[in-house]
Design a protein around this nucleic acid. Structure first.
Lengths: 123, 123
DNA sequence: GTTCTTGCAAAGGATTTGCATCCTC
DNA sequence: GAGGATGCAAATCCTTTGCAAGAAC
């Protein structure tokens, strides 16, 4: 537990919304001017790995295009990041009808089920 | 409607799953060896913009860390990509209990509501 | 012909990595 | 003192862009 890791954690705890590593870096720099962006990245990665913080959406390394035209959602393995489709019915979710808070106009729902795929469960 | 755009579209129609631009590029290259990756990117972007294809999850430019520890989901504006939290209750979704197809072990649900935020609706 | 598209290479942004040095325990 | 963490810079990956040459209508 180093000083910068401690400060990084404290700073992040006070933040709201969905900050990017750059934004966290900017805040930490105010308390520890010599801190490097690499350190911020390394520690955020560590925090997310250990479950202390969570990332908003899993990155798949690159953009992915959806080929399944049926209404469906995704099962995303938190280990290998594989994406498997799951039909709306199988998932058992039903979107709320009507307006959402703040006047947000709904186009579609995109549900990711995060978990461990069968293959990763074996290893 | 150029030749490479036509081929790109035809190739993509035959693909399954969630291919990356690189994967699409590799397939198109077999039919049009001189095609460039830039062209593939440009056209995929065009297809997604016009709604012919859809991207699996919206990119926010960089990683985002979740600071809200309450159970909640996200409203993501398809124009400005802003992320707004929405409580589980407000969203009116309830996850299915029990096992999912393929033995997928559920850790959590991550629901993104894709649409247009109030601010973007005005402009 | 005019406009849009292509291919190439260079630029760009986000993130990771190698490595020598420095800090914790 | 050993092992892990830091800072720096270079490297990497994914994606976009500028621009001259080429295709489409």
């Amino acid at each position: 537990m180093t000083h910068q890791r401690q400060v990084l954690y404290e700073v992040m705890k006070t933040m709201h919304g969905h900050p990017s590593p750059e934004e966290v870096y900017a805040k930490v720099k105010k308390k520890v001017p010599a801190v490097s962006l690499a350190t911020v990245y390394k520690n955020i990665h560590l925090f997310v790995e250990s479950g202390i913080f969570r990332e908003v959406s899993l990155h798949h390394g690159s953009q992915r295009v959806e080929m399944n035209r049926e209404p469906h959602h995704h099962m995303v393995c938190s280990r290998c990041k594989s994406i498997t489709d799951i039909g709306e019915r199988d998932l058992g979710l039903s979107g709320k009808h009507g307006r959402l808070p703040g006047g947000f106009l709904v186009e579609r729902y995109s549900v990711d089920v995060i978990g461990i795929c069968a293959k990763c469960q074996q290893s």
